[in-house]
Design a protein around this nucleic acid. Structure first.
Lengths: 226, 226
DNA sequence: GCAATAGTGTCTGTTAGACACTATACC
DNA sequence: GGTATAGTGTCTAACAGACACTATTGC
C-alpha cells in the first residue's frame, strides 16, 4: 500500500514568569526559511524517537534542563499543507512551564534565544497561532491543576504563587483570599517549616508543591462570559 | 537537509448516546495488521489535505454525514515508534460527538462498523488508550461547554439533555435541579415554542442549542477528588 | 380519579469575594 | 515608633443540592 510521506517536527511553547510578566522562549532563526525571524524552538523528530522524547530533547537543547519544577505536555498538532515551504511538515506542539531561568542557550540552528513577552507577534511559520493556543491552555489549566507551581522554584511563598496567577491571567487577585484558598486546597501546597529571611515585612512561610494532580476546589479566575 | 519520513493518519473517536449508554463507533479491520480486530475508524492523510479535512472526510465516509448537531475537534497525537508494525506512523486523533444515528456504513478497508459501549477493550494499535483519552475529554468538556447538545437532535427536551449528561458521566442527576440550572444558564438553550406530543406525562418544551461557546456558570459533575 | 413526567419554590450548607483586623519582620 | 508584608476572622451574596409542591398530559 502506498501513502504520502511527511516530515514530523516538534515545536515548543516554553513559558515562564519574569518580573511579573508571562514570557515565552523564542529563537531567532539562523537558516531559511524565515531566516532572522523569531520562532518557537523545535526541530525534526528522529527516526526512532517518541514525540514526547523529541520534545524533551529539544527543551534540554534550548534551556539546558527540563529541571525540577518544570512541566511538559502535548498541546496540539498542526498540519496545514502549506505551513512549511520546505514541504509537507506536520508539527506536534508541546507546552512547557518552567521557573525563571538565568539565560537560555542558542541551539544549533538558532542564532539567538531570548525570553519575550507573550504579546510578541510576527513569528515564523504558524507559530503566532501555536503560541496563542499554548497561552490559552496555560491560562485554563491553572484553574484546575496545580501547574502554577511549575513556574516556581522548588520552595516558594504563597505570594510568589499568587504573582504567577496574576501574571498568567493578567488580573490582580486579593492576597488574603488567595492565601486562604491556596493553603486550604488539599494536596496543593506542602509546608516546609522554612520561612523567608531578609525581605521587608513579616517573613513568609515556604511551601513545596503537593501531590495533588487536580485541584478541588479549583482556583477560579474571574469569568469573562461566553 | 535530510530528515526521517513518516506516514500520517487520522483516527476518530466518534461518540454518541444510545439508550442511555455512551457508545463509540468501531470498525472491524478487514486487512492486516490487526485483521478482524475492532479499531477506531481512520485512515491516511492525503498528500495535499489538512488534518481537520482528513478527519471530516473519514467521518463522512464512516457515518454518511458530519450532520447538524455534531461536533469535531482535535484530541491528541500519538507517535510512539512501534505503534504501527507497517512503519513509522504518527496519528492525529479527533473527537466527534454525534446524535444517535441509524446504522453506520462499512468503510472501504473495514469489514463492518458498529456502535459499541465505551467499555470495549482490546482494540487494534494503541486505540484503547486513544479511546480512553477521548472519553475523558468528552466528560470534562461537558462541564464548561455546551457540547452536550452535540449528542442531541436539533430540537430536544431538557430531560433528553440531562440523559446525555447522565450517560457520559455515568451518574444520576436530580431532574429538578438540572432543569433550573440548564434553563437559567445564559446562551445554553433557546426555546423553540414547540412541545413534545404523545409522550406519557406532561408535555415538555423543546429547545435548540444557544450560541454560547462557554457555559457560565458551568454544569458541574460531582468531584471525585484528586 | 391515577400515573407519569414537567417545571417551580424553598430551605440549608458551602463558597467566593470584600475587607477589618492581627502578627511579625526591618527600619 | 512607622512601614511593609503575612496571615486570620467575619460578613454577605451567590450557588449547589435536597426535596416539597404544583402543572399538565394520557389512561
Amino acid at each position: 500500500m502506498s501513502y504520502p510521506v511527511f516530515a514530523v517536527t516538534v515545536d515548543l511553547v516554553v513559558l515562564t514568569v519574569r518580573e511579573g510578566e508571562l514570557c515565552v522562549l523564542l529563537v531567532r532563526r539562523g537558516i531559511e526559511p524565515y531566516k532572522d525571524r523569531w520562532a518557537l524552538p523545535g526541530g525534526f523528530v528522529l527516526a526512532d524517537e517518541d514525540l514526547a522524547d523529541a520534545a524533551r530533547r529539544e527543551l534540554a537543547e534550548e534551556t539546558g534542563l527540563d529541571g525540577p519544577g518544570g512541566h511538559l505536555e502535548q498541546l496540539a498538532t498542526y498540519g496545514t499543507p502549506d505551513r512549511d515551504p520546505r514541504g509537507r511538515v506536520v508539527t506536534a506542539a508541546y507546552l512547557a512551564l518552567l521557573p525563571d531561568l538565568p539565560v537560555p542557550n542558542a541551539g544549533s540552528d538558532a542564532a539567538a534565544a531570548a525570553w519575550r513577552p507573550i504579546t510578541q507577534q510576527g513569528l515564523a511559520f504558524d507559530h503566532d497561532r501555536i503560541l496563542a493556543d499554548g497561552v490559552e491552555r496555560a491560562r485554563s489549566k491553572l484553574e484546575y491543576s496545580p501547574l502554577a507551581t511549575a513556574f516556581c522554584p522548588p520552595e516558594f511563598t504563597v505570594a510568589a504563587l499568587r504573582q504567577v496567577y496574576e501574571a498568567v491571567w493578567g488580573e490582580s487577585i486579593d492576597p488574603r483570599n488567595f492565601h486562604r484558598k491556596a493553603t486550604s486546597t488539599p494536596g496543593f501546597l506542602l509546608p516546609t517549616g522554612h520561612s523567608t529571611e531578609g525581605e521587608p515585612g513579616r517573613p513568609a512561610k515556604l511551601f513545596r508543591r503537593g501531590d495533588a494532580t487536580l485541584l478541588n476546589p479549583p482556583i477560579l479566575r474571574r469569568r469573562t462570559g461566553g
